[in-house]
Amino acid sequence: MVNTNAKYRLSGRNRTKILLLTIFLLTALLFSLDIILGSVTIKLKDIFDVLLNKSDSEIYSVIVKFRIPKAITALLVGVSLSVSGLQMQTIFRNPMAGPYVLGISSGASLGVAVLILGFSDYFTAKSLELLGNWSLAAASWAGAGIVMVIIMLISIKIKDILAILILGIMLSGGISSIVSIMQYFSSETMLKSYVIWTMGSLGNVSSEQLEVMALCIAAGLIISIFSLKMLNAILLGETYAETLGVNIKKARILVFVSTSLLAGTVTAFCGPVGFIGIAVPHIARMIFKTSDHRVLLPSVIFAGASLMLISDIISQLPGSERVLPVNAVTSLIGIPVVIWVILKTRKYA
């Protein structure tokens, strides 16, 4: 008979808590390092002096106007790309899914390209600011959303992991061709605005843009919280999820809105950033050894933020005047993880 005294204990809870605390502290440390390190290394003492006294020194303007917003941007980018990657990998049941690989980021750039190259006839070189940050973000969401819908519809029919991956690459390729054609037909000023946008990096985000970004990403994260329980069941596949009472359509819509918001917003203000979204969820699963999205969400938030902060620190080449494009750094960090995952999941291909 059933031993009613025997209780099922959830395993590994303490381990999870310790790991979460560790990774949170790591994020905080990297955040501080990102502010301290740069072409000029600033002493920690100076930072506190500046923040407390608000002296109008040169250091003050470097820290407050440049380094802190950049660190916050890095944090937001890391968080939102990783969370959208996590959701996409589960909803597509594809370990290779991510906003960059599946062309969601390209879709967002298409949205921006259409906005800048198509509708900015009257804008001057300063067009981006006149255009408004919200319209830029909205154009990105629309572009990201369209690609997301295409991928979702096709992935209902085609379950093959590599086929979906190739589809994502095709979509990215197609989109960049469309953008090139648009560039060809656009005027010099428009082209200039667009090129400035494509070079967008973590450091070019204005404080107004940062506000818009933070709001949108917060919205995307809150929506993602409501999909967590469903995502756990969807790991079993749609048939089993359905028999457990999951409303698959609702889950798809939640993930669709959340990822379009998250990945779209990041792309709108920072340009496409590759491989964070695909790599971070795998790193989190490896460290936390769980498939429970209620644990994975906070883990990818901190792991994503940390990885993006590390990438930013590296891209600054501390102590030197040169700066690397951050996308190159994230790719170099992310690609080995992706290759590891391909080797690990070869049996499903």
Partner: peptide, 12 residues
């Protein structure tokens, strides 16, 4: 039907 969730534990 096989479950493809890589990091899922039996308990989960």
């Amino acid at each position: 039907e096989q479950i493809r969730a890589d990091s899922m534990k039996v308990g989960e």
